[in-house]
Computed example of a mutant assay.
Amino acid sequence: MPFVNIKTPEGALSKVQKEEIVHRTTDMLVDYLSEAARPHTMVLIEEVKDGGYGRADEIFVIPDAYRAPRES
């Protein structure tokens, strides 16, 4: 079973964007592995809370301009 784990900042992607990523990632793997892989492909999108990741002693917080619009 192909398994893809994608980590993004919390709030960076809308539900529609996540659905598109799952679909496109699955299609990409099917291109490499054959159509037989489609029903067994798992794409996990994990959202990391602000302040929960960083690099070189800098903690990251996603700017409001990069947040997905709130869904109603």
Rank of each mutant, 00 (worst) to 15 (best):
M1G: 15
M1C: 10
F3S: 12
F3A: 10
F3N: 11
V4P: 07
N5A: 08
N5I: 07
K7F: 05
K7Q: 12
K7W: 05
T8S: 10
T8H: 07
P9F: 10
P9G: 10
P9E: 02
P9Q: 01
P9M: 06
P9H: 04
E10W: 03
G11F: 06
A12T: 08
L13H: 06
S14P: 04
S14F: 01
S14A: 06
K15Y: 03
V16L: 12
V16G: 01
Q17A: 05
Q17R: 05
Q17L: 02
K18N: 01
E20F: 04
V22D: 01
V22A: 01
H23V: 05
R24S: 00
R24T: 04
T25I: 01
T25N: 00
T26P: 00
T26G: 04
D27W: 04
M28P: 00
L29E: 02
D31A: 09
Y32I: 11
S34W: 14
S34E: 15
E35N: 11
E35P: 05
A37V: 00
R38H: 02
H40P: 00
H40M: 10
H40C: 06
V43I: 15
L44D: 09
L44T: 13
L44W: 14
L44I: 15
I45Y: 02
E46W: 06
E47G: 06
V48Q: 05
V48S: 04
K49S: 13
D50Q: 07
G52V: 03
Y53K: 02
Y53R: 03
Y53P: 01
Y53G: 03
G54C: 03
R55N: 13
A56V: 09
D57Q: 12
E58C: 11
E58Y: 11
I59R: 08
F60S: 09
V61P: 01
V61C: 13
I62D: 00
P63G: 09
P63R: 07
P63T: 06
P63W: 09
P63F: 11
P63V: 06
D64N: 11
Y66Q: 15
Y66F: 15
R67V: 08
R67C: 07
A68W: 09
A68H: 08
E71P: 07
E71V: 14
S72G: 15
S72Q: 14
